[in-house]
Amino acid sequence: MTASGVSVKICGLSEAETAHVAAGAGARWLGFVHFAPSPRHLDLAAARALAPDLPPKGPERVGVFAGADTGTMAAFADILSLDWVQLHGAETPDDIAALRDRLGLKVMKAISVGGPADIAAAAAYVGAADMILFDAKPPKDSVLPGGNAVSFPWGLMRGHDSALPWLLAGGLTAATVSQALADSGANALDVSSGVETAPGVKSASKIRAFLMAAKAAKQGA
Rank of each mutant, 00 (worst) to 15 (best):
G26S: 09
G31E: 11
A51D: 07
G58T: 04
P52H: 05
A23W: 00
A46I: 08
P59Y: 03
F32C: 03
P39A: 01
A46P: 04
A23T: 12
P55G: 07
G71R: 01
S38L: 04
A49E: 14
V33F: 00
D53H: 10
G24P: 11
H34M: 14
L50G: 08
V33W: 04
V64W: 02
F35N: 10
G31F: 01
T70S: 14
F32K: 03
R61W: 10
L30T: 02
M73P: 03
F65S: 05
H41Q: 11
V62R: 01
L44K: 05
W29S: 01
H20Y: 11
F65L: 08
G26T: 10
A23P: 09
A46K: 15
A23D: 01
D53C: 00
G67N: 14
G67K: 02
V21C: 12
H41R: 03
P59N: 04
S38D: 08
G58D: 08
A25R: 13
R48P: 01
D53T: 00
L50P: 06
G71P: 06
A46Q: 15
T72F: 09
L54H: 03
V33G: 00
A23M: 03
D69S: 10
A46R: 15
P52D: 02
A51H: 10
D53S: 06
P55F: 08
A51Q: 09
G31L: 05
A68I: 02
A45Y: 13
G24T: 07
R48C: 07
R48D: 14
G63T: 06
A22N: 07
A36Q: 15
F32V: 05
L44H: 11
P55N: 05
A66E: 09
P37T: 13
A51M: 09
A75G: 03
D43Y: 13
L30M: 04
A68M: 00
P39L: 10
F65I: 05
P55I: 02
P39Q: 11
A75T: 12
A49N: 05
L42N: 07
A25P: 09
D43N: 15
L42C: 08
M73G: 05
P39H: 13
P39N: 13
H41P: 08
F35S: 05
L42K: 09
L30Q: 05
A36P: 15
P52Q: 01
L44Y: 00
A27I: 08
P37Q: 12
H41G: 07
